[in-house]
């Protein structure tokens, strides 16, 4: 069972459907008990960083996500959900994040179009179980802010948008994808499938 954490932000339906299409059970939930009991958890998110953290606090889910991450069961943040894993973001003022990964989230700055919207090619910067059996290709991004991980070893893949942009991060069992794997064709589904497998492996080893 994979919990899709519902804290009032984002398109939960698509993520849940995608997980189900991969043959895993998905449960869209805001219940701390259900989240903590799940074998894997996905933190989705569309919208503003500050609103998202405010929602996580109001619903009491901030501590639940942190507790979940500490349990060592796989957690995947998607899009804004990935950004929330970091220490802080400068989106509409400085906001504190979940602090599961050291680093911050900053706005794209330059003479180019923002949001970074559309299909861009991944570059795998190190090995990861998420990449098992896969070759890098295009995935679908849409974001105006991007994450700057403090530790190079947390960065698993980048893409190029006038600079190397953080695309996939991971440390221990905490993962994040800046793009939308559920909207990224075959490669997106394959990456999500590797996460689902990771969850299954972990669950059978516990």
């Amino acid at each position: 069972m994979i919990a899709i954490i519902d804290y009032g932000m984002g398109n939960l339906h698509s993520v849940g459907k995608a997980v189900e299409r991969l043959g895993a059970e998905a449960l869209v939930t805001s219940s701390p008990e259900e989240i903590l009991a799940a074998d894997g958890a996905i933190l989705p998110g569309v919208g503003a960083f500050g609103d998202a953290m405010a929602n996580l606090r109001e619903t009491g889910l901030e501590s639940v996500v942190k507790e979940y991450a500490a349990s060592g069961k796989p957690l995947l943040g998607i899009c804004l959900g990935m950004q929330l894993l970091f220490d802080e973001s400068e989106e509409h003022g400085t906001h504190t994040g979940l602090g599961l990964l050291p680093g911050k989230v900053v706005r794209f700055q330059g003479d180019y179009k923002v949001p970074h919207m559309g299909w861009n090619e991944l570059v795998f910067t190190q090995e990861s179980p998420l990449f098992s059996g896969l070759n890098p290709g295009h995935v679908y991004f849409v974001h105006s802010y991007h994450a700057l991980p403090e530790r190079k070893e947390d960065l698993l893949a980048t893409t190029d948008y006038y600079q190397p942009v953080t695309a996939i991060v991971g440390r221990g069992s905490v993962y994040g994808m800046q793009f939308h794997p559920e909207k990224s064709g075959e490669l997106g589904m394959a990456l999500l499938n590797n996460f689902v497998k990771l969850v299954a492996n972990k669950a059978s080893n516990l």
Partner: peptide, 11 residues
């Protein structure tokens, strides 16, 4: 829209 979202893998 609901059925499409369950079928396709692009935005």
């Amino acid at each position: 829209v609901r059925r499409t979202a369950g079928e396709i893998t692009i935005p």
